[in-house]
Design a protein around this nucleic acid. Sequence first.
DNA 1: TCTCTTTAGAGAGCAGTGCTCTTGTCATGG
DNA 2: CCATGACAAGAGCACTGCTCTCTAAAGAGA
Lengths: 237, 237
Amino acid sequence: MLGVRARARVELTRAIVETARRHLAQDGPVNLSLRAVARELGMVSSAVYRYVPSRDDLLTLLIVDAYDALGAAAEKAEAKVPRADLDGRFVAVGRAVRTWAIEHPHEYALIYGSPVPGYAAPQDTIAPATRVPAILVGILGDAVAAGAYDPAVAPEVPPAVRRSLAPVRAAIPDVVPDDLVVRGLMAWSTLLGLVSMEQFGQFHNVLAEAASQREAFFTEALRRTSAVTTRTPAPRP
Amino acid sequence: MLGVRARARVELTRAIVETARRHLAQDGPVNLSLRAVARELGMVSSAVYRYVPSRDDLLTLLIVDAYDALGAAAEKAEAKVPRADLDGRFVAVGRAVRTWAIEHPHEYALIYGSPVPGYAAPQDTIAPATRVPAILVGILGDAVAAGAYDPAVAPEVPPAVRRSLAPVRAAIPDVVPDDLVVRGLMAWSTLLGLVSMEQFGQFHNVLAEAASQREAFFTEALRRTSAVTTRTPAPRP
DNA sequence: TCTCTTTAGAGAGCAGTGCTCTTGTCATGG
DNA sequence: CCATGACAAGAGCACTGCTCTCTAAAGAGA
């Protein structure tokens, strides 16, 4: 049984994070001020430290929230596509990521931009960070299961590259061969690269600014990426 | 003829930027303090404002410097590869970008990470920013010239996508078809995506941390990217 | 029910930031 | 030679993260 004090505590912590999220969305991670959050909540800055150890910890909470929100958006979009449509599922995930990034630019910058806190990503963030990649791993597995990707003709990956994949292999079913893991990582990099470049202004004077054209380009790029990822004809040099 | 005062002015401006660059390299863009720079130069903070309008303008100068340094590194690396070796040239550029990013993490974050100033990229930065992409455009052109990519069998790009390419088309020779432009943009996105993910810690618990293995994976990814970019057999869904 | 400990909040304060304004000093151009 | 302009310095404003001390209230044990 939680006493009045304990209930007030979780409630206030929630309110602090909630207010901080709004400030983050408006002013960006750099301008997130603990004092401003306290001010809006009608308390003095030192009182906030009873609930949040430091500004960086507050940012960490927001990072976790952002990863979760993005993961949820991607999962929801992917669930709407028939499981047999591998390309459709990948494109749906990619578009969901991009749409979420456009709607939450500062949150996106917080998780996929340059790390603003003391460089070390806390342990709490790695689990929610895997949510979107997990969807992609699912697609890879289904590509093998459905026969779109035939592991029998999968090219061998150079030993040094194989060794580099060791950590991620632990999270991917063995039926997915190393070659497909490499392709998946490349697809994920392309996806984040495209979104980040657009989000961080790297496409100015490169792509037309109109939303419809941006979307057309992005969708085309996603389709092509999916085509060279889940299909067997191997892109080997 | 420049008087004593004018000479001292350019000299001091250079010293300020130089000191700021060192601070940036050590502490990152967020922690770049105009006061600290002034302190190291033995002057008071208000004096610096005679030479630099604001902290953001100082950062802009550093952005231009960073783009130039990266561009120079990439150009140097690409120049060492025989021009007929298209894949080799692309891989060389990619590796140069990655190496430079590893050696100058904060500078890399400054130009390709989340924009830290008031979001608007000043006009001065767009020219130096095109240096590396210009190399890639050269490779695309040579792929057509050498016949590795045959424009005759190039697939048509959907009209909406074609329209989205309008701005960048102005900087790319007409012999490079739209399809190849899309491929080039995707390759550039993949390259920056890979480097940014590694740089911003997105590959923790994904790829092995050892430098040699990271490099093996990266080179493999670059080779594959080049293979699906400059060769004609089209990756069409 | 009455202490006694824990906890929440307030306020002051420290060290730091970007930036502005005033004040005195010197080099430069007429 | 002298007035004008650039320049450096200092004080000051408003802000930041964070720490400390102090008071008041809530929780737990006798």
